[in-house]
Design a protein around this nucleic acid. Structure first.
Length: 788
RNA sequence: GGGCCCGUAGUGGAAUGGUUAACACGUCGCUCUCACACAGCGAAGAUUCGCGGUUCGAUCCCGCGCGGGCCCACCA
C-alpha cells in the first residue's frame, strides 16, 4: 500500500475505520501475561460538543494510552459520559416546557443520547483510542445502582446523614447548591447605619440587609475595639425593640461600618459561623422562594427581600433610626447557572461527612503521584478550608435518586434495601415501612459529583466483580483538569478511599485550560470560541494532536495558537514527503535483513543520533512531558534526518554503480530504520500519520501494537557525531558560499581547502557529492574551510 | 487577606549553575536542485522584568521589588 500523496482527513478516516474493525485498542480481559494500565478518564458533561479544553485534556491521556500500549501494557481505557446536570434540565425545559418528573427525565435522557452520539463521533474523529465496549453513562440504571450502593455503604459507615442545616440556596431555582455551584459577583449596594439601643443610649450598627432584622439574634463587636470593649452591657435592643445579647467576637472587623454588627440567621456565611459558635437561636428569615417569614408584628411576611428592604428603611427613617446610608462595593455569591444571588437557608438535606475526614483525604492524596507536583497543593488548601460537610442532595429532577425512604410523619429516613436497587421513585413512590407506616421515596437527587466521584470503582465493576476490580483498581492514571481538583479529584479520593481503604488511582495528571489566541478565556459572549470541528477540517486530527502536545507545561493555561497548528500541518507534510523518498529508495530493499553491510560514517552518525533521540523521547513520555517528546522528534527528523542525512544518502541510492551496492544497502537500512522508529516515537501523538507510513512498509500490522523502540547504546558513536557535525558545518559553509553568490545549490564549487582535527577520509565522499565540491585540499589542523 | 504559578527576540514559547540562549510563526534576501514552494538555503532580531545575595561563574538557586495569571477566602 503506497503512502498517500497528500495527507488529510480521508487518510485519517481510513485508519479510524481500520482500527475499529481490527479491534486495535481492545483491552484483553483474559490476557494475564501483560501488566494492566488502567485509565480513569474524565466523563465529559454531555453538552453536545467538545471544546478545546476537552481536546487538550483528552489528547494528553490518549498519548499516555498509546505510549503504554506500545510499552507492552494491556491498556484499559474506557470512556464515560457525565449526563445529569442542571444545564440539561434548563435546555430541555426551554424546549419542551415543564413536564411531570417522569416524563421530563425521559426527555432529558433522550436529549442526552443525541448529544453523546455527537460527542462520541468527535472523539473518534480525533483519533482517541478508547475501548468503546466499556462505555458508561451516569444516567443508566446500572450506574445509578452503583452510586446508590456506594451511598448506602457510606451510610452504613456513618458517613452520610440527613440533617437540617444552612445550605447555599437558590431561591430562583428552588434548590440547595454546593459551594462549587456558586460564583462571586461584585456589585454596588448601600450600607445602612441603624440605631440600636444599648442601655438607653444609641448604638450604631451597619448593615446591607435591614430586611433581615427580624432574624437578628445578637449584636457583635470586636473585644479589642476600645470603643466598645468596656461597655459592660450584655443586652442590646434592636431598632424594633427586641432584646438580643451583645457578644464579643474577634471576627468582627473594627474598620468596617461602625465596628458593630447585627447577627442574623442567615444573612451570610459569617452569620452561620457565629450562630454555631455562640449557640444562637435560629429564626427563619426567608422561605425557599426568597420571601420573608416570621416577621411577626412587623407584618412583612410574604414580601420579597427587595420590597421588604424598602419598607423597613422607610419605617426606620420615620422613626429617626436610620442615621445614614452609604454606597459600597460588595461581593455577593450568585448561582453560576442563573446568576441570581444565593441565600442561606435552613433546609433538610443529605450530607456526607468531610470536615472530620479532611486530613485523611490529604493523606490518601499524598499517596498519589501528582504531575505536576504542585497540583496537590490545590487539594490540600481546599481540604483544610472545608468548613461544612458536603451537601450531596439536590432538589433536581434529572439526577440519581437518593436511595432512602422517608416517613413523612416522623421525618425518619430508612435506607433502601440492596435488593431495591436501582432505586427509582418513578417505579415505586411509596412502600410500607417496618412498623406498617407509609414510607415515601426520597425525591431529592444526588449532586452530580456524587455520580462522578466513583468512576474508578464503576469502571472496575465494583463491587461484584472482585477479580476484575483487583486488576484495574486503583487506576493507573487519573487525568483531569486542574480546575476540578477540589471537586472531582477531592470527592473521588474521599469516596473511594472510604469505600475501599485505598487511594483510587496511582498517578494523577493535570492539564490547564485553553485560552483564546488573544489570551482571554474562550466564551460565547466574546465570540472567540474555536471549534474543534473546524480545525479538524482545516488541519486534520494529527495536526490538532500535535498542537495539544506542543501546548507545553502541565496545568498551565495556554492561548490557542494557530502558528502551532500551521507548524504541525507542515511537519506532517514533511514526514509524508520524506517517507515517500524513503519508500521509493527502499523499493528493492528487504528491511528485515540485519545490518551486516559496512556502514558509512554518516550512517553511524544518524543511528547514533537516533539512539539518543529514542532515549530522550522515552524519558519525556515517562514524565508526561509531551511538548518535549514531540519537539525532540520533530527537530531531529526535520533538521538532522531530512536536512542532512537524506541529502547524504541520495547519491548512494541513485548511483550505486558509482558508490557501491553495499553502500546503497547501508543507506537504505539506516534511512528505513530512522523513518520507522521516528514514526513509532510519533505514534502516540500522530497515530494516523504514523500508521499510514508504517503500514506502507509493514502492511496489516498496526504500529500501535508494535513495541516501543529501544535505545541501542552500542550504536552511540561519539566519533561519528564529531565527524559528521564537522561535515554538516562544511556543507552549511558551502551552502552559504553559494547563497552569497546567488548560485543555485546544485552548482559546483571547483575547489575547497579544508582543515579538520581528524582525517576526513570517511566523510570526503559526502563533501564531494552533497556539497558538490570538485577538488578538496585537506590538512590536519583546526576546523576551517575556504572555497575557490 | 491566604495559597500556587509565571515574567526569555515582534509574537508564541523550550532549555541550562559554565563556550555563539532552542525551535516555530512573522520579517528580509536567494533558490522551483529529480521527497517536499505546506519546501530548501541563508540573514536580521534577546542587557533571559529590576535590584541585591549565594557562587570562581546565574537567565537558572535565594531574598526583596515591580508586573501578569489561576485558585481560595472575604466585612455584616
Amino acid at each position: 500500500m503506497p503512502i498517500c500523496d497528500r495527507y488529510g482527513r480521508s487518510v485519517e478516516e481510513k485508519w479510524q475505520e481500520w482500527w475499529e474493525k481490527s479491534g486495535t485498542y481492545n483491552f484483553s480481559e483474559s490476557d494475564a501475561s501483560k501488566p494492566v494500565y488502567s485509565i480513569d478518564t474524565p466523563p465529559p458533561f454531555t453538552s453536545g460538543e467538545l471544546h478545546m479544553g476537552h481536546v487538550l485534556s483528552y489528547s494528553y491521556f490518549d498519548f499516555v494510552a498509546r505510549y503504554k500500549r506500545m510499552r507492552g501494557y494491556n491498556v484499559y481505557y474506557p470512556q464515560g459520559w457525565d449526563c445529569q446536570g442542571f444545564p440539561t434540565e434548563v435546555k430541555v425545559e426551554s424546549k419542551y416546557g415543564r413536564k411531570p418528573p417522569k416524563e421530563f427525565r425521559q426527555l432529558c435522557a433522550k436529549w442526552t443520547e443525541e448529544f453523546i452520539a455527537k460527542m462520541r463521533a468527535q472523539m473518534k474523529a480525533l483519533g482517541f483510542s478508547a475501548d468503546w465496549r466499556y462505555e458508561y453513562r451516569t444516567m443508566d440504571p446500572s450506574y445509578h445502582k452503583k452510586v446508590q450502593l456506594s451511598i448506602l455503604e457510606m451510610h452504613k459507615k456513618g458517613l452520610i446523614y440527613r440533617s437540617e442545616h444552612p445550605v447555599y440556596w437558590c431561591t430562583n431555582c428552588v434548590s440547595a447548591l454546593a459551594k462549587t455551584d456558586t460564583e462571586d459577583v461584585s456589585r454596588e449596594t448601600e450600607l445602612h447605619y441603624v440605631s440600636f439601643s444599648l442601655g438607653g443610649k444609641p448604638l450604631l450598627i451597619a448593615t446591607t440587609r435591614p430586611e433581615l432584622m427580624h432574624a437578628c439574634v445578637a449584636v457583635a463587636y470586636n473585644p479589642s475595639d476600645e470603643r466598645y470593649a468596656k461597655l459592660g452591657e450584655t443586652k442590646v435592643e434592636t431598632a424594633f425593640g427586641k432584646q438580643v445579647p451583645l457578644i464579643p467576637d474577634s471576627d468582627v472587623d473594627k474598620e468596617f461600618g461602625t465596628g458593630v454588627v447585627m447577627v442574623c440567621t442567615f444573612g451570610d456565611k459569617q452569620d452561620i459561623i457565629w450562630m454555631y459558635k455562640h449557640k444562637l437561636p435560629v429564626i427563619r428569615a426567608i422561605d425557599e422562594h426568597g420571601r420573608l417569614i416570621n416577621t411577626g408584628e412587623m407584618g412583612l411576611d410574604g414580601l420579597k427581600c427587595g420590597e421588604a428592604r424598602a419598607k423597613i428603611l422607610e419605617r426606620l427613617k420615620a422613626e429617626g433610626k436610620l442615621v445614614k446610608s452609604a454606597k459600597i462595593q460588595q461581593v455577593v455569591k450568585v448561582h453560576d447557572r442563573c446568576k441570581k444571588p444565593v441565600e442561606f437557608l435552613l433546609s433538610m438535606q443529605w450530607f456526607a461527612k468531610i470536615t472530620e475526614k479532611s486530613e485523611e483525604i490529604i493523606d490518601y492524596a499524598k499517596k498519589i503521584k501528582w504531575t505536576p507536583s504542585f497540583g496537590i497543593q490545590y487539594l490540600i488548601d481546599w481540604a483544610r478550608y472545608v468548613e461544612w460537610d458536603w451537601v450531596i442532595s439536590r432538589q433536581r429532577v434529572f439526577g440519581t435518586p437518593l436511595p432512602f425512604w422517608i416517613d413523612q410523619k416522623t421525618g425518619k429516613a430508612y435506607p433502601a434495601e440492596e435488593s431495591e436497587l436501582p432505586f427509582n421513585p418513578d417505579l415505586r413512590p411509596t412502600k410500607i415501612g417496618p412498623d406498617g407506616q407509609i414510607l415515601h421515596a426520597e425525591s431529592s437527587t444526588c449532586d452530580c459529583w456524587v455520580d462522578s466521584s466513583i468512576t474508578p470503582l464503576v469502571i472496575g465493576r465494583w463491587p461484584e466483580d472482585k477479580a476484575f476490580l483487583s486488576r484495574v483498581y486503583p487506576a493507573s492514571l487519573r487525568p483531569q483538569g486542574v480546575e476540578i481538583v477540589r471537586t472531582w479529584a477531592f470527592y473521588t479520593i474521599y469516596r473511594c478511599s472510604q469505600l475501599t481503604s485505598q487511594a483510587p488511582f496511582k498517578e494523577i495528571l493535570l492539564n490547564g485550560n485553553v485560552l483564546a489566541p488573544d489570551g482571554k478565556k474562550m466564551s460565547k459572549s466574546l465570540g472567540n470560541i474555536i471549534s474543534p470541528d473546524k480545525l479538524l477540517t482545516d488541519y486534520s486530527a494529527d495536526a490538532i494532536r500535535q498542537w495539544a502536545a506542543l501546548s507545553g507545561a502541565m496545568a498551565k493555561d495556554r492561548p490557542f495558537s494557530y502558528q502551532d497548528m500551521q507548524y504541525s500541518k507542515s511537519f506532517i507534510n514533511k514526514v509524508v514527503n520524506a517517507a515517500k523518498l524513503v519508500e521509493k529508495a527502499c523499493a528493492d530493499f528487504d528491511g528485515s535483513e540485519a545490518p551486516r553491510f559496512s556502514l558509512r560514517m554518516v550512517d553511524r552518525w544518524i543511528l547514533s543520533r537516533l539512539s539518543g533521540i529514542v532515549s530522550k523521547a522515552t524519558e519525556s513520555f515517562e514524565g508526561f512531558q509531551f511538548h518535549q517528546a514531540i519537539k525532540i522528534v520533530q527537530d531531529f527528523f526535520w533538521h538532522e534526518f531530512c536536512d542532512f542525512y537524506l541529502e547524504y544518502a541520495k547519491h548512494r541510492i541513485y548511483q550505486p554503480e558509482i558508490y557501491g551496492h553495499e553502500s546503497k544497502r547501508a543507506a537504505q537500512y539506516a534511512m528505513r530504520r530512522v523513518l520507522l522508529e521516528c514514526c513509532q516515537l510519533l505514534a502516540p501523538i500522530t497515530p494516523h500519520l504514523s500508521e499510514e507510513i508504517w503500514q506502507s512498509f509493514r502492511p496489516g500490522q498496526s504500529i500501535h501494537l508494535s513495541s516501543w523502540p529501544e535505545s541501542k547504546s552500542h550504536e552511540a558513536d561519539p566519533e561519528a557525531e564529531e565527524q559528521v557535525e564537522f561535515l554538516n558545518w562544511v556543507v552549511s559553509q558551502a551552502r552559504q558560499h553559494k547563497a552569497d553568490r546567488k548560485q543555485p545549490l546544485n552548482s559546483e564549487i571547483s575547489h575547497a581547502s579544508i582543515s579538520a582535527p581528524f582525517p576526513i577520509s570517511d566523510i570526503e565522499e559526502e563533501i564531494h557529492a552533497t556539497a558538490r565540491i570538485k577538488v578538496i585540499n585537506y590538512a590536519l589542523g583546526s576546523k576551517s574551510v575556504s572555497f575557490a
